[in-house]
Amino acid sequence: MRLRSDIFVSALMRRVFARGDFAAVEVKGAEEAGAVFVRQVFRDGAESLHAPAPQSFFEAEESGLRRFETRLERVEAPAVAEALARERRFDGDLWVVSIETDDLGDLIDFAAAEPKDDGFFRR
Protein backbone atom coordinates (compact mmCIF):
# COMPACT_ATOMS: atom_id res chain seq x y z
CA MET A 1 0.00 0.00 0.00
CA ARG A 2 1.34 3.43 -0.96
CA LEU A 3 1.84 6.17 1.62
CA ARG A 4 -0.67 9.03 1.30
CA SER A 5 0.66 12.00 -0.67
CA ASP A 6 0.16 14.52 2.13
CA ILE A 7 2.12 12.37 4.58
CA PHE A 8 4.89 11.72 2.03
CA VAL A 9 5.23 15.46 1.31
CA SER A 10 5.22 16.35 5.00
CA ALA A 11 7.95 13.80 5.74
CA LEU A 12 9.98 14.93 2.71
CA MET A 13 9.85 18.54 3.87
CA ARG A 14 10.92 17.62 7.39
CA ARG A 15 13.91 15.74 5.98
CA VAL A 16 14.87 18.72 3.82
CA PHE A 17 14.71 21.12 6.78
CA ALA A 18 16.68 18.67 8.96
CA ARG A 19 19.50 18.85 6.39
CA GLY A 20 19.51 22.65 6.61
CA ASP A 21 17.99 23.16 3.16
CA PHE A 22 14.70 24.88 2.28
CA ALA A 23 11.49 23.42 0.84
CA ALA A 24 8.03 24.74 0.09
CA VAL A 25 4.81 23.27 -1.23
CA GLU A 26 4.07 25.27 -4.39
CA VAL A 27 0.94 23.32 -5.31
CA LYS A 28 -1.10 21.22 -2.90
CA GLY A 29 -2.77 18.30 -4.63
CA ALA A 30 -5.04 15.47 -3.62
CA GLU A 31 -4.20 14.40 -0.07
CA GLU A 32 -4.64 10.69 -0.60
CA ALA A 33 -3.17 9.95 -4.01
CA GLY A 34 -1.96 13.07 -5.81
CA ALA A 35 1.18 12.69 -7.92
CA VAL A 36 4.20 14.43 -6.36
CA PHE A 37 6.59 16.46 -8.52
CA VAL A 38 9.86 17.78 -7.08
CA ARG A 39 11.24 21.06 -8.39
CA GLN A 40 14.93 21.25 -7.48
CA VAL A 41 16.36 24.78 -7.39
CA PHE A 42 20.14 25.15 -7.54
CA ARG A 43 22.17 28.04 -6.10
CA ASP A 44 23.07 29.25 -9.58
CA GLY A 45 19.39 29.62 -10.52
CA ALA A 46 19.14 26.50 -12.68
CA GLU A 47 16.35 24.03 -11.93
CA SER A 48 15.60 20.35 -12.39
CA LEU A 49 12.19 18.67 -12.46
CA HIS A 50 11.71 15.22 -10.97
CA ALA A 51 8.41 13.48 -11.70
CA PRO A 52 6.83 10.21 -10.58
CA ALA A 53 8.40 7.31 -12.43
CA PRO A 54 6.08 5.18 -14.58
CA GLN A 55 4.75 2.06 -12.89
CA SER A 56 6.65 -0.09 -15.40
CA PHE A 57 9.81 0.69 -13.38
CA PHE A 58 8.42 -1.11 -10.34
CA GLU A 59 8.45 -4.76 -9.36
CA ALA A 60 5.21 -6.14 -7.92
CA GLU A 61 6.61 -6.13 -4.36
CA GLU A 62 7.64 -2.47 -4.72
CA SER A 63 4.19 -1.16 -5.58
CA GLY A 64 4.04 1.00 -2.44
CA LEU A 65 7.23 2.93 -3.20
CA ARG A 66 7.43 6.41 -4.64
CA ARG A 67 10.17 6.58 -7.21
CA PHE A 68 11.06 9.51 -9.41
CA GLU A 69 12.58 10.14 -12.80
CA THR A 70 14.30 13.33 -13.92
CA ARG A 71 12.29 15.03 -16.65
CA LEU A 72 14.36 18.21 -16.95
CA GLU A 73 17.90 18.65 -15.68
CA ARG A 74 19.58 21.98 -14.91
CA VAL A 75 17.45 24.17 -17.16
CA GLU A 76 16.14 27.72 -16.83
CA ALA A 77 13.19 28.26 -14.44
CA PRO A 78 10.66 29.09 -17.22
CA ALA A 79 11.20 25.65 -18.80
CA VAL A 80 10.30 23.95 -15.51
CA ALA A 81 7.30 26.24 -15.00
CA GLU A 82 6.04 25.43 -18.50
CA ALA A 83 6.43 21.68 -17.97
CA LEU A 84 4.53 21.90 -14.67
CA ALA A 85 1.76 23.93 -16.30
CA ARG A 86 1.34 21.19 -18.92
CA GLU A 87 1.21 18.53 -16.21
CA ARG A 88 -1.38 20.51 -14.23
CA ARG A 89 -3.64 20.75 -17.29
CA PHE A 90 -3.50 16.96 -17.48
CA ASP A 91 -3.70 16.29 -13.72
CA GLY A 92 -5.15 18.99 -11.48
CA ASP A 93 -4.56 16.90 -8.33
CA LEU A 94 -0.76 16.87 -8.44
CA TRP A 95 1.62 18.25 -5.83
CA VAL A 96 4.66 20.43 -6.54
CA VAL A 97 7.36 20.57 -3.89
CA SER A 98 10.19 23.03 -4.45
CA ILE A 99 13.49 22.13 -2.78
CA GLU A 100 16.41 24.54 -2.76
CA THR A 101 19.51 22.34 -2.73
CA ASP A 102 22.38 21.49 -5.02
CA ASP A 103 22.21 17.81 -4.02
CA LEU A 104 19.04 15.84 -3.34
CA GLY A 105 21.18 13.13 -1.76
CA ASP A 106 18.89 10.47 -0.34
CA LEU A 107 15.76 12.63 -0.10
CA ILE A 108 13.93 10.78 -2.91
CA ASP A 109 14.39 7.47 -4.70
CA PHE A 110 15.06 7.45 -8.42
CA ALA A 111 13.78 4.68 -10.69
CA ALA A 112 17.27 3.63 -11.79
CA ALA A 113 18.57 3.44 -8.22
CA GLU A 114 18.07 0.86 -5.51
CA PRO A 115 15.46 1.98 -2.94
CA LYS A 116 16.70 3.08 0.47
CA ASP A 117 15.36 1.49 3.62
CA ASP A 118 15.11 4.20 6.25
CA GLY A 119 12.07 2.79 8.00
CA PHE A 120 9.64 5.38 6.68
CA PHE A 121 9.79 5.81 2.92
CA ARG A 122 9.72 2.03 2.21
CA ARG A 123 6.11 1.68 3.35
Score class of each variant (00 low, 15 high):
1 M>E: 13
2 R>N: 08
8 F>T: 13
9 V>Y: 08
9 V>S: 03
11 A>D: 10
11 A>Q: 14
13 M>Y: 03
13 M>I: 12
15 R>T: 11
16 V>Q: 07
16 V>P: 01
18 A>M: 09
20 G>T: 10
20 G>Q: 09
21 D>I: 03
21 D>K: 02
24 A>Y: 05
27 V>M: 14
30 A>Q: 10
30 A>T: 00
32 E>Y: 04
36 V>L: 13
37 F>C: 07
38 V>I: 15
39 R>D: 05
40 Q>E: 13
41 V>T: 00
44 D>I: 06
47 E>H: 01
47 E>A: 09
47 E>C: 09
47 E>N: 01
48 S>C: 07
50 H>Q: 10
50 H>A: 08
52 P>A: 09
53 A>S: 12
53 A>K: 02
55 Q>D: 08
56 S>V: 06
57 F>H: 15
57 F>N: 11
57 F>E: 09
59 E>H: 11
59 E>F: 14
61 E>S: 12
63 S>L: 09
64 G>T: 08
68 F>Q: 01
69 E>H: 04
69 E>F: 01
70 T>C: 14
71 R>G: 15
71 R>C: 12
72 L>T: 07
73 E>T: 08
73 E>G: 13
76 E>S: 15
77 A>F: 01
77 A>K: 12
79 A>T: 14
79 A>D: 15
80 V>H: 06
83 A>G: 08
83 A>Y: 04
87 E>V: 11
88 R>C: 00
88 R>K: 14
91 D>F: 12
91 D>A: 13
92 G>T: 11
93 D>K: 02
97 V>T: 07
98 S>H: 02
98 S>T: 08
98 S>R: 15
99 I>H: 01
100 E>F: 04
102 D>C: 02
105 G>C: 03
105 G>W: 02
106 D>S: 07
107 L>E: 03
108 I>A: 00
110 F>K: 02
112 A>K: 09
114 E>T: 13
114 E>C: 10
114 E>D: 11
118 D>L: 06
118 D>T: 04
118 D>W: 09
118 D>M: 07
118 D>V: 04
120 F>H: 13
121 F>P: 08
122 R>E: 11
122 R>P: 09
